[in-house]
Design a protein around this nucleic acid. Structure first.
Lengths: 193, 193
DNA sequence: CCTTATCTTGAACATACATTCAAGATAAGG
DNA sequence: CCTTATCTTGAATGTATGTTCAAGATAAGG
């Protein structure tokens, strides 16, 4: 006889950003309480516990990413051109991105591996889906004769995500935007050759 | 008038493996106490606190890695051949490696980024040194005319570490050894073309 | 062999953490 | 406008954490 008051998307995005910045373990319920403007009771009523909130935030993250991805790749430009642009978007995120300097999925799976198999398998699923989405785009590019290759779309997609994960990790060691952009360019060339 | 009894290398390697498995935050002093067979007093006397122990473990890790690296690259074989072999060693680590499935440096910097700038800068220093070591080897390979390129050794090294970081992260999402080896091969080809 | 400096031991401590719960507030249904 | 179901509030709880410290043990120096 009463409806929940808080804005789910706001809460999940705030939580998502905290988890991205501090990691899973170091994001305390205290912090989550603050950024979501929710009291512990409400959080536990809505998401069960910290893990539940994290998984919900992960889902929101995946949704937001998919939307961004679809928006980019649904223009009518050649796929490869969009892909090249997509890589620069990632590079920019790695540098400025006050809000999303890292990928929540890879950061979390790296931290949680060896601690929580359940969270791991959810994250693995999301990352595999991401890889498949890229494979689809590469397949389309091949169908359009945008480039030729001896490799399968799966193999290409795997190489591409490896490169993206690598760039993201490299950015933690070196914040030079020219170096990162160079990496993105080299990766793109390696992909289509 | 009394000498310390415990074996420093043993203690640091045990701590190192715990940090690799559970991460910095989730490796409790309790756990460290267990794996090092040390009592809290001894740990705090020798290393100050958890962070001190972690940094000492990191140093040991770096030493061990350098030794492994030097052993591999100091044979009299062509550098590129050794490099190719080195990549398969990394791939193997990612799969079986009960002891060292991950790189302590990249795993830790990913976790600690945004929490502890001091640890971060130490790790960044170590990873930059790693990149420079690879650049030296690539320079040597170029001096030996093992391959030709339009890129600088620094650029090549950057691409290589990006690939290695990427393979390590990808391994968290997919434990298929053939896929990982394929990635390593593709990376190698992209590097020398 | 005694002294003394240093190491080892493990119980104790304060803090920070995730989580619970009972009381108060409030929106919808009749 | 009253009832009731549900949400909100925030203090309280128990546990786990990193850390300290004083007492006991032990190796080296004279």
């Amino acid at each position: 006889m009463r409806t929940a008051e808080f804005d789910t998307e706001f809460v999940l995005r705030q939580a998502m950003h905290a988890f991205m910045q501090y990691g899973y373990a170091k994001t305390s319920m205290q912090k989550l309480k603050e950024v979501t403007h929710l009291h512990p009771g409400s959080i536990y009523a809505a998401y069960g516990n910290k893990k539940g909130l994290f998984l919900a935030a992960t889902e929101q993250y995946q949704k937001d990413r998919n939307q961004q991805f679809t928006a980019l790749f649904n223009d009518q430009q050649p796929i490869l051109l969009t892909l090249k642009h997509y890589l620069t978007v990632i590079v920019d995120e790695c540098i400025e991105g006050e809000v999303a300097k890292v990928c929540l999925l890879t950061k979390s799976i790296s931290e949680v591996e060896g601690n929580d198999p359940q969270i791991c398998s959810v994250l693995r699923g999301n990352l595999n889906a991401y890889e498949n989405t890229l494979a689809e785009q590469l397949q389309k590019a091949l169908d359009n004769n945008e480039f030729t290759t001896t490799k399968t779309p799966q193999q290409l997609a795997r190489f591409l995500v490896m490169g993206i994960y690598g760039i993201r990790t490299y950015a933690l060691t070196n914040q030079d935007s020219k170096a990162l952009q160079q990496l993105a360019d080299d990766l793109f060339v390696a992909l289509i050759n």
